[in-house]
Write a protein that binds this DNA or RNA. Structure first.
Lengths: 147, 147
DNA sequence: TAAGATTGAAATGTCAATCTTA
DNA sequence: TAAGATTGACATTTCAATCTTA
Protein backbone atom coordinates (compact mmCIF):
# COMPACT_ATOMS: atom_id res chain seq x y z
CA UNK A 1 0.00 0.00 0.00
CA UNK A 2 1.36 3.41 -0.97
CA UNK A 3 2.08 5.80 1.88
CA UNK A 4 0.64 9.13 0.75
CA UNK A 5 2.67 11.06 3.33
CA UNK A 6 5.84 9.81 1.69
CA UNK A 7 4.48 10.78 -1.72
CA UNK A 8 3.68 14.26 -0.40
CA UNK A 9 7.12 14.55 1.15
CA UNK A 10 8.95 13.44 -1.99
CA UNK A 11 6.80 15.70 -4.14
CA UNK A 12 7.25 18.83 -2.05
CA UNK A 13 10.94 18.35 -1.25
CA UNK A 14 11.88 17.46 -4.81
CA UNK A 15 10.02 20.49 -6.09
CA UNK A 16 11.90 22.66 -3.62
CA UNK A 17 15.29 21.26 -4.60
CA UNK A 18 14.52 21.29 -8.32
CA UNK A 19 13.35 24.90 -8.22
CA UNK A 20 16.32 25.90 -6.09
CA UNK A 21 18.93 24.35 -8.34
CA UNK A 22 17.51 25.76 -11.57
CA UNK A 23 17.08 29.16 -9.92
CA UNK A 24 20.65 29.17 -8.58
CA UNK A 25 22.12 28.34 -11.99
CA UNK A 26 20.01 30.96 -13.78
CA UNK A 27 21.08 33.61 -11.27
CA UNK A 28 24.73 32.61 -11.52
CA UNK A 29 24.96 32.37 -15.29
CA UNK A 30 22.36 34.88 -16.50
CA UNK A 31 21.52 37.01 -13.47
CA UNK A 32 17.81 36.20 -13.71
CA UNK A 33 15.56 34.24 -11.39
CA UNK A 34 13.41 31.26 -12.31
CA UNK A 35 10.18 33.07 -11.44
CA UNK A 36 10.94 35.74 -14.02
CA UNK A 37 11.85 33.15 -16.65
CA UNK A 38 8.63 31.29 -15.97
CA UNK A 39 6.61 34.47 -16.43
CA UNK A 40 8.47 35.31 -19.64
CA UNK A 41 7.74 31.84 -21.00
CA UNK A 42 4.04 32.43 -20.41
CA UNK A 43 4.14 35.84 -22.08
CA UNK A 44 6.05 34.39 -25.02
CA UNK A 45 3.57 31.58 -25.58
CA UNK A 46 0.28 33.36 -24.80
CA UNK A 47 -1.28 35.62 -27.47
CA UNK A 48 -2.55 38.89 -25.99
CA UNK A 49 -1.16 37.91 -22.60
CA UNK A 50 -2.58 39.78 -19.59
CA UNK A 51 -1.57 39.84 -15.91
CA UNK A 52 -4.53 37.59 -15.22
CA UNK A 53 -3.15 34.96 -17.62
CA UNK A 54 0.16 34.99 -15.76
CA UNK A 55 -1.57 34.37 -12.45
CA UNK A 56 -3.53 31.43 -13.86
CA UNK A 57 -0.57 29.81 -15.58
CA UNK A 58 1.73 30.09 -12.58
CA UNK A 59 -0.93 29.34 -9.95
CA UNK A 60 -0.23 32.55 -8.03
CA UNK A 61 -2.53 35.41 -7.04
CA UNK A 62 -3.25 38.31 -9.38
CA UNK A 63 -1.49 40.64 -6.94
CA UNK A 64 1.60 38.51 -6.99
CA UNK A 65 1.53 38.35 -10.78
CA UNK A 66 1.23 42.13 -11.01
CA UNK A 67 4.32 42.54 -8.83
CA UNK A 68 6.21 39.94 -10.87
CA UNK A 69 5.48 41.93 -14.03
CA UNK A 70 6.66 45.07 -12.24
CA UNK A 71 10.03 43.39 -11.78
CA UNK A 72 10.18 42.34 -15.43
CA UNK A 73 9.41 45.88 -16.55
CA UNK A 74 12.01 47.36 -14.20
CA UNK A 75 14.59 45.05 -15.77
CA UNK A 76 13.38 46.16 -19.22
CA UNK A 77 12.50 42.62 -20.27
CA UNK A 78 8.81 43.31 -20.83
CA UNK A 79 6.36 46.18 -21.34
CA UNK A 80 2.68 46.74 -20.63
CA UNK A 81 0.92 47.91 -23.81
CA UNK A 82 -2.55 49.38 -23.94
CA UNK A 83 -5.20 46.76 -24.66
CA UNK A 84 -7.50 48.11 -27.39
CA UNK A 85 -10.14 45.47 -26.58
CA UNK A 86 -10.40 46.21 -22.85
CA UNK A 87 -9.05 49.33 -21.20
CA UNK A 88 -8.97 47.75 -17.73
CA UNK A 89 -6.06 45.53 -18.69
CA UNK A 90 -2.77 45.69 -20.57
CA UNK A 91 -1.19 43.38 -23.09
CA UNK A 92 2.20 42.11 -21.99
CA UNK A 93 5.00 41.94 -24.53
CA UNK A 94 8.62 40.92 -24.24
CA UNK A 95 11.21 43.47 -25.30
CA UNK A 96 14.12 42.57 -27.58
CA UNK A 97 16.28 42.22 -24.47
CA UNK A 98 13.62 39.99 -22.93
CA UNK A 99 13.52 37.74 -25.98
CA UNK A 100 17.30 37.52 -26.06
CA UNK A 101 17.47 36.63 -22.37
CA UNK A 102 14.68 34.07 -22.64
CA UNK A 103 16.46 32.38 -25.51
CA UNK A 104 19.50 31.80 -23.33
CA UNK A 105 17.48 30.95 -20.22
CA UNK A 106 15.51 28.13 -21.80
CA UNK A 107 18.78 26.41 -22.71
CA UNK A 108 19.76 26.33 -19.05
CA UNK A 109 16.21 25.42 -18.05
CA UNK A 110 15.97 22.48 -20.45
CA UNK A 111 19.43 21.28 -19.50
CA UNK A 112 18.56 21.21 -15.81
CA UNK A 113 15.26 19.41 -16.44
CA UNK A 114 17.15 16.80 -18.41
CA UNK A 115 19.66 16.34 -15.63
CA UNK A 116 17.24 16.34 -12.70
CA UNK A 117 14.21 14.58 -14.18
CA UNK A 118 15.00 12.65 -17.35
CA UNK A 119 18.42 11.25 -16.44
CA UNK A 120 17.47 9.45 -13.21
CA UNK A 121 14.40 7.75 -14.73
CA UNK A 122 13.78 5.02 -17.26
CA UNK A 123 11.79 6.01 -20.32
CA UNK A 124 8.66 4.27 -19.07
CA UNK A 125 8.99 5.69 -15.55
CA UNK A 126 9.22 9.19 -17.03
CA UNK A 127 6.13 8.61 -19.13
CA UNK A 128 4.24 7.37 -16.08
CA UNK A 129 5.37 10.30 -13.97
CA UNK A 130 4.26 12.76 -16.62
CA UNK A 131 0.91 11.04 -16.96
CA UNK A 132 0.19 10.88 -13.23
CA UNK A 133 1.20 14.50 -12.62
CA UNK A 134 -1.01 15.61 -15.49
CA UNK A 135 -3.92 13.65 -14.04
CA UNK A 136 -3.70 15.00 -10.51
CA UNK A 137 -3.06 18.55 -11.67
CA UNK A 138 -6.09 18.63 -13.93
CA UNK A 139 -8.32 16.66 -11.61
CA UNK A 140 -11.58 18.42 -10.63
CA UNK A 141 -10.54 18.17 -6.99
CA UNK A 142 -7.72 20.60 -7.72
CA UNK A 143 -10.02 23.13 -9.29
CA UNK A 144 -12.66 23.83 -6.69
CA UNK A 145 -13.58 27.43 -7.27
CA UNK A 146 -14.75 29.49 -4.35
CA UNK A 147 -17.28 31.94 -5.74
CA UNK B 1 8.49 11.94 -26.44
CA UNK B 2 7.81 13.44 -23.03
CA UNK B 3 7.94 17.22 -22.83
CA UNK B 4 9.91 17.98 -19.69
CA UNK B 5 8.64 21.56 -19.55
CA UNK B 6 5.11 20.23 -19.19
CA UNK B 7 6.27 17.83 -16.47
CA UNK B 8 7.93 20.72 -14.64
CA UNK B 9 4.83 22.84 -15.00
CA UNK B 10 2.47 20.13 -13.76
CA UNK B 11 4.82 19.31 -10.88
CA UNK B 12 5.27 22.88 -9.67
CA UNK B 13 1.68 24.01 -10.15
CA UNK B 14 0.19 20.90 -8.57
CA UNK B 15 2.52 21.27 -5.60
CA UNK B 16 1.42 24.89 -5.23
CA UNK B 17 -2.28 24.03 -5.35
CA UNK B 18 -1.92 20.96 -3.12
CA UNK B 19 0.00 22.91 -0.48
CA UNK B 20 -2.44 25.80 -0.69
CA UNK B 21 -5.54 23.66 -0.24
CA UNK B 22 -4.20 21.68 2.69
CA UNK B 23 -2.88 24.85 4.29
CA UNK B 24 -6.19 26.65 3.88
CA UNK B 25 -8.16 23.82 5.46
CA UNK B 26 -5.75 23.50 8.38
CA UNK B 27 -5.96 27.25 9.04
CA UNK B 28 -9.74 27.23 8.79
CA UNK B 29 -10.42 24.19 10.94
CA UNK B 30 -7.48 24.15 13.37
CA UNK B 31 -5.89 27.60 13.08
CA UNK B 32 -2.49 26.15 12.21
CA UNK B 33 -0.48 26.34 9.00
CA UNK B 34 0.86 23.43 7.00
CA UNK B 35 4.50 24.46 7.52
CA UNK B 36 4.05 24.18 11.27
CA UNK B 37 2.34 20.80 10.98
CA UNK B 38 5.15 19.55 8.78
CA UNK B 39 7.75 20.63 11.31
CA UNK B 40 5.80 19.02 14.14
CA UNK B 41 5.61 15.77 12.21
CA UNK B 42 9.41 15.78 11.90
CA UNK B 43 9.87 16.50 15.61
CA UNK B 44 7.40 13.76 16.49
CA UNK B 45 9.16 11.14 14.38
CA UNK B 46 12.81 12.11 14.95
CA UNK B 47 14.53 11.03 18.19
CA UNK B 48 16.65 13.84 19.67
CA UNK B 49 15.42 16.21 16.98
CA UNK B 50 17.50 19.36 16.43
CA UNK B 51 16.89 22.48 14.31
CA UNK B 52 19.36 21.07 11.81
CA UNK B 53 17.23 17.95 11.39
CA UNK B 54 14.20 20.10 10.62
CA UNK B 55 16.09 21.95 7.90
CA UNK B 56 17.23 18.70 6.29
CA UNK B 57 13.83 17.02 6.39
CA UNK B 58 11.95 20.02 5.02
CA UNK B 59 14.63 21.08 2.53
CA UNK B 60 14.83 24.60 3.91
CA UNK B 61 17.77 26.58 5.29
CA UNK B 62 18.86 26.33 8.91
CA UNK B 63 17.92 29.96 9.42
CA UNK B 64 14.44 29.32 8.11
CA UNK B 65 14.09 26.27 10.32
CA UNK B 66 15.17 28.25 13.37
CA UNK B 67 12.48 30.84 12.71
CA UNK B 68 9.88 28.14 12.10
CA UNK B 69 10.68 26.66 15.52
CA UNK B 70 10.40 30.16 17.03
CA UNK B 71 6.82 30.25 15.79
CA UNK B 72 6.06 26.81 17.22
CA UNK B 73 7.45 27.84 20.60
CA UNK B 74 5.51 31.10 20.57
CA UNK B 75 2.34 29.07 20.02
CA UNK B 76 3.39 26.75 22.87
CA UNK B 77 3.38 23.66 20.67
CA UNK B 78 7.06 22.85 21.17
CA UNK B 79 10.00 23.65 23.44
CA UNK B 80 13.78 23.74 23.05
CA UNK B 81 15.40 21.57 25.75
CA UNK B 82 19.09 21.62 26.61
CA UNK B 83 21.03 18.97 24.70
CA UNK B 84 23.27 17.14 27.21
CA UNK B 85 25.36 15.69 24.36
CA UNK B 86 26.14 19.01 22.61
CA UNK B 87 25.64 22.41 24.18
CA UNK B 88 25.59 24.18 20.80
CA UNK B 89 22.21 22.71 19.98
CA UNK B 90 18.86 22.04 21.61
CA UNK B 91 16.57 19.05 21.53
CA UNK B 92 13.10 19.86 20.22
CA UNK B 93 10.09 18.37 21.96
CA UNK B 94 6.37 18.75 21.37
CA UNK B 95 4.31 19.95 24.30
CA UNK B 96 1.05 18.28 25.29
CA UNK B 97 -0.80 20.95 23.36
CA UNK B 98 1.46 20.28 20.38
CA UNK B 99 0.76 16.56 20.48
CA UNK B 100 -2.96 17.17 20.77
CA UNK B 101 -2.96 19.56 17.82
CA UNK B 102 -0.82 17.26 15.69
CA UNK B 103 -3.19 14.39 16.31
CA UNK B 104 -6.06 16.42 14.84
CA UNK B 105 -3.97 17.91 12.07
CA UNK B 106 -2.82 14.61 10.59
CA UNK B 107 -6.45 13.59 10.17
CA UNK B 108 -7.05 16.62 7.97
CA UNK B 109 -3.70 16.12 6.26
CA UNK B 110 -4.34 12.48 5.39
CA UNK B 111 -7.87 13.24 4.26
CA UNK B 112 -6.65 15.91 1.83
CA UNK B 113 -3.91 13.66 0.46
CA UNK B 114 -6.51 11.01 -0.18
CA UNK B 115 -8.76 13.46 -1.97
CA UNK B 116 -6.09 15.23 -4.02
CA UNK B 117 -3.68 12.38 -4.82
CA UNK B 118 -5.21 8.96 -4.31
CA UNK B 119 -8.71 9.58 -5.60
CA UNK B 120 -7.83 10.84 -9.09
CA UNK B 121 -5.38 8.01 -9.82
CA UNK B 122 -5.65 4.30 -10.47
CA UNK B 123 -3.83 2.06 -8.02
CA UNK B 124 -1.04 1.34 -10.48
CA UNK B 125 -0.67 4.98 -11.50
CA UNK B 126 -0.29 5.94 -7.84
CA UNK B 127 2.36 3.28 -7.32
CA UNK B 128 4.25 4.52 -10.36
CA UNK B 129 4.00 8.14 -9.25
CA UNK B 130 5.33 7.26 -5.82
CA UNK B 131 8.18 5.27 -7.31
CA UNK B 132 9.23 7.95 -9.81
CA UNK B 133 9.10 10.75 -7.23
CA UNK B 134 11.18 8.69 -4.83
CA UNK B 135 13.75 8.06 -7.56
CA UNK B 136 14.19 11.68 -8.65
CA UNK B 137 14.20 12.95 -5.09
CA UNK B 138 16.94 10.57 -3.97
CA UNK B 139 18.92 10.77 -7.19
CA UNK B 140 22.56 11.86 -6.73
CA UNK B 141 21.89 14.81 -9.05
CA UNK B 142 19.57 16.24 -6.41
CA UNK B 143 22.18 16.00 -3.72
CA UNK B 144 25.17 17.90 -5.04
CA UNK B 145 26.67 19.45 -1.93
CA UNK B 146 28.51 22.73 -2.28
CA UNK B 147 31.30 22.59 0.27
C1' DT C 1 38.70 25.58 12.42
C1' DA C 2 34.39 23.78 11.97
C1' DA C 3 29.54 22.81 13.40
C1' DG C 4 25.04 24.23 15.25
C1' DA C 5 22.26 27.92 15.78
C1' DT C 6 20.51 32.71 15.81
C1' DT C 7 19.53 37.24 13.88
C1' DG C 8 18.46 41.14 10.71
C1' DA C 9 17.96 42.58 5.97
C1' DA C 10 16.23 41.62 1.54
C1' DA C 11 13.14 39.11 -1.67
C1' DT C 12 8.73 37.14 -2.92
C1' DG C 13 4.29 35.68 -2.10
C1' DT C 14 -0.70 36.27 0.01
C1' DC C 15 -4.49 39.03 1.43
C1' DA C 16 -7.63 42.88 1.53
C1' DA C 17 -8.81 47.32 0.13
C1' DT C 18 -9.24 50.20 -3.70
C1' DC C 19 -9.45 52.06 -8.42
C1' DT C 20 -10.97 51.93 -13.19
C1' DT C 21 -13.65 50.13 -16.80
C1' DA C 22 -17.19 46.48 -18.71
C1' DT D 1 -22.33 44.73 -10.13
C1' DA D 2 -18.52 42.42 -11.69
C1' DA D 3 -13.87 41.96 -13.82
C1' DG D 4 -8.99 43.30 -14.34
C1' DA D 5 -5.44 45.29 -12.05
C1' DT D 6 -2.77 47.81 -8.55
C1' DT D 7 -1.12 48.82 -3.95
C1' DG D 8 0.34 48.45 0.91
C1' DA D 9 0.60 45.62 4.97
C1' DC D 10 1.94 41.28 6.47
C1' DA D 11 4.17 36.53 6.48
C1' DT D 12 7.77 33.39 5.29
C1' DT D 13 11.89 32.26 3.20
C1' DT D 14 16.92 32.93 1.84
C1' DC D 15 21.33 34.92 2.62
C1' DA D 16 25.19 36.68 5.33
C1' DA D 17 27.11 37.95 9.44
C1' DT D 18 27.74 36.59 13.99
C1' DC D 19 27.87 33.97 18.33
C1' DT D 20 28.85 29.84 21.04
C1' DT D 21 30.72 25.41 21.64
C1' DA D 22 33.23 20.98 19.61
Amino acid sequence: VTNLRVVFDDLVRFETVLWGEIDARLRRELDVQLGSVNAMMVIDSTPECRVYDISQSLAITVGGASQAIDRLEKAAWCVRRANPADRRSSILELTDAGHALLKKAVVVFDDELDRMIRAPLSASALTQLASALHTVRHSPTSHVQST
